[in-house]
Design a protein around this nucleic acid. Sequence first.
DNA 1: CAGCATCCGCTGGGATACTG
DNA 2: CAGTATCCCAGCGGATGCTG
Lengths: 144, 144
Amino acid sequence: MKPSHSKVTARSCAPAQFVRHLPADLCHSVGEVLARVGDKWSILVIYLLSQRDMRFSELKRSLGSISQKVLTTTLRGLERDGYVTRTITPVIPPRVDYALTRLGRDALEPVTELAMWALKRRKEVEAARRVFDAKASRVSATAD
Amino acid sequence: MKPSHSKVTARSCAPAQFVRHLPADLCHSVGEVLARVGDKWSILVIYLLSQRDMRFSELKRSLGSISQKVLTTTLRGLERDGYVTRTITPVIPPRVDYALTRLGRDALEPVTELAMWALKRRKEVEAARRVFDAKASRVSATAD
DNA sequence: CAGCATCCGCTGGGATACTG
DNA sequence: CAGTATCCCAGCGGATGCTG
């Protein structure tokens, strides 16, 4: 295994021809970021590393329910895109430390912004869901 | 099929016990937002609808390569979480219009912020990737 | 300790066909 | 036109076992 890195899948963004302003490009860029940071663990990892540098097993313990494989994959992805550094200390037993890069710390800002927004709007989303689901079940009940 | 809505999967966020400040909650919230907006099409749909209200087939045409099924799923998800409204006009042939809610327009802001950041950092990420990939191939070449 | 390798289930997303 | 209903596949994320 080697070049699974070469493809990050980045949501293919459609032409959307007539959209003029900052469209495809904007979409594509968001896609790139989300493709990296939008997976199950990346954000938490970035957040943890913003608190302090950590080694592999510390991260694993902190995350709790993640598998080594997935943590490794996550860290490799973040490393590839320049969000974290990976420092190997060749001792026995081996020691590998992970730290945020400037880009990684930088990313923290817009992501946190998004998080704050999410926190603020949480109730609204939950409410919207309840309404929608209630409506849906009423419909399917009527259909019976 | 009916209650596929009831679960949005929202990245399960681990306990991460010792993380004190705004950790699990923050992560969970970002997870929720990303689970909705982090898929392949949601952001573009929101962006399109921010330009003007559109009906189903307009959206489909604008997106180009999306299938009906996926567009429907995407729109249902956005509707459920309160980002868009769905207005049926019972004529023949049927007409359904989609529009952003206040929450939807509101979401545009942090998302755009993220997009701008992504746009700004694009080069850096690309550079980081080239470095990483070059290193990786050198390693595997050495291994031969 | 920090990892690869392997196997596996689940779901996101696409293609196609059919309906009110 | 705006969907539903099916079938299908790729890929993520998880579990387990093995190594330097």
